[in-house]
């Protein structure tokens, strides 16, 4: 079985619950002082949803992003992704889940500085153990889809901010993840470029992908069809937009 599933064929998986969080808390211990970053959060994410998580800094939205991205485990509560209990998962299992099911897009782009665009996009497939020919073909295809077919061998330092974020999106799509997780993806971009990136997310959502945006920006959140407003580690409001 190839670790790389074909692109844009999400049939049969487009419906149903993807993420389930129930009474999730996250407590950080910092020098004897306990910081309650999340205080009993419950919500679910359906397949194919376009969700924005909004809130000021310190509201707990970053913590939610880390939990959804399987970079961290909750202190207590229940958290299930695609039928997998994340509280019981080991570090290596979480790494496997991140590799197979999560596509990250960061505010800082977070490309590997010493690898070219193609290599950056290939990286998740390398960790998945995909064969070279297969992953190169797919990485090229994805870079062409985000409009960077002529920038394959450019290094991050040779690309503009918008181009870097497109490479990051192509990389996030490499292993055909169940969820695209974007943390302030337009935070380091000018308005026009930011809108282009958001339009790309819109387009990916239209193709049937599950997209989660974490932002403090109302304008960015307005692209989503559902907005979770957070404050002080709790969900303030779960708003559906049309």
């Amino acid at each position: 079985m190839s670790p790389l599933r074909p692109l844009a064929s999400q049939d049969g998986e487009t419906m149903g619950e993807l993420f389930h969080l129930e009474d999730v808390t996250k407590v950080y211990k910092m020098d004897e002082v306990e910081v309650r970053a999340l205080d009993g959060v419950s919500f679910a994410i359906q397949r194919g949803e376009f969700l924005a998580i909004m809130g000021p800094s310190g509201s707990g939205k970053s913590t939610v992003m880390h939990l959804l991205g399987c970079l961290d485990r909750p202190t207590s509560g229940r958290m299930v992704l695609d039928g997998l209990d994340l509280l019981k998962a080991s570090d290596n299992q979480l790494a496997e889940i991140r590799n197979a099911k999560i596509g990250f897009v960061f505010q800082q782009f977070n490309l590997l500085p010493r690898e070219n665009a193609l290599r950056n996009v290939e990286t998740p497939a390398i960790y998945a153990g995909a064969r070279r020919a297969e992953r190169v073909r797919r990485a090229k295809e994805l870079l062409e889809r985000v409009g960077l077919g002529d920038r394959l061998f450019h290094f991050p330092s040779q690309l503009s901010g918008g181009e870097r974020q497109r490479v990051a999106i192509a990389r996030a799509l490499m292993n055909d993840p169940a969820i695209l997780l974007a943390d302030e993806p337009t935070g380091n971009l000018d308005t026009k470029t930011g809108e282009e990136i958001l339009a790309l997310f819109q387009h990916l959502h239209d193709e049937g992908r599950t997209v989660v945006l974490v932002t403090h920006d109302q304008r960015v959140a307005s692209y989503a069809s559902r907005i979770l407003h957070m404050q002080d580690g709790r969900i303030l409001r779960d708003e559906r937009v049309n």
Binding site: L71, N99, F104, N110, P124
Partner: peptide
């Protein structure tokens, strides 16, 4: 970054 992309221990 590598860990976020799925690199194991």
């Amino acid at each position: 970054i590598r860990k976020a992309l799925g690199a194991k221990h």
